[in-house]
Amino acid sequence: MIYILGVFFDNFIPKWHSQAEKIDYNVFILVVKGKVKYSINGEQIIAEKGDLVFIPSGTLRGAENHESGEHQKYTVAFTIDKNVDYSNPFPIDKKFHKIKTRNPEYVKHRFERLFVDSRGDKKFRSYICVGVLQELLGMFARELDSPTITPSKVKYTSIIENYLLENYRKNIEIEQLAKLINRSPSYTISVFKELMGQSPIKYIHQLRIIEACNLLQNTDMTIGAISDYLGYYDPSYFSRMFKKLTSMSPKEFSMYGHQIEFSNLLT
């Protein structure tokens, strides 16, 4: 059983630091912007944007802002029941780990949701928050278990992802993405899928539908207007794609989406 002690968001805090001490809880971190300097059992570690960090209980840990300036990060402190069910053991080795997440936007969204829900209705808070944290830890463990990925693949994927994040509302062809990294279209699809778990085209649709969910819940835009804004232009095609990824129509989501866990949406 996991017990969440706290969920925190550090938002460019001047002179931020954490004095070196042996912690008796686990810490799970996503760095959103900037860099953080950690001391882990006497070793200096730098965590930067997109890094997921796991610091196990019993670690001598200290931390402070990097010399380059302040940072943004989400931090979850939690403990694990010693009487854990070993038929479903904790999936991460109890040692320090730091990796670059392969799906930063989704992971960031889940940390945001965890932060918000940790301050929500006490009646359901623990169940919802533990569920979100377990999902994040499971994704982290899966990435740790994956084969080593070369720095060049990480670089190529980062270039493509950043381009898609800035241009997902536009009509994008695979050939355009291939030119960004000077590789063939087939290689471009392959390397992106290896690191992100989906093709560039599916990632574009995912970004669009995530934004559509936001617009349906928080604006008065019509379904047709949202379709145009997101680059679909054909409202019926937009509705089919929306339902394919969320199992709901846009109209259904505008009515009931606030009741749905985001992790259950993108199927």
Rank of each mutant, 00 (worst) to 15 (best):
G42D: 12
Q206G: 02
F78P: 09
D117I: 02
M255W: 04
V132P: 07
R208F: 08
Y203P: 06
L52D: 00
G197P: 10
M255L: 15
L144V: 10
D51A: 11
N26T: 07
S152T: 13
A63Q: 11
N182K: 14
R119V: 01
P200G: 00
C129H: 04
M241A: 11
M139Q: 10
K153W: 01
A63F: 06
I92C: 11
F78M: 10
A77Q: 03
A77G: 01
P104T: 09
S236R: 08
E175C: 08
I160Y: 06
S263H: 04
F253Y: 15
Y256A: 02
Q217E: 15
F111I: 04
T101N: 09
L30S: 01
F54V: 14
E211C: 07
L137F: 00
F96T: 09
Q176A: 05
N88I: 14
Q198C: 09
I172H: 06
R119Y: 07
Y233R: 04
P250T: 14
Y229S: 15
F8Q: 15
M1D: 15
I181L: 08
F12Y: 12
R240G: 03
T75M: 15
L52F: 01
G6P: 14
K82C: 02
R208G: 07
G6M: 12
K37C: 05
L215N: 01
G34R: 04
C129Y: 03
I45P: 07
L216F: 04
G34Y: 06
Q259S: 05
F253C: 05
N171W: 12
V76F: 06
E252K: 03
C213P: 00
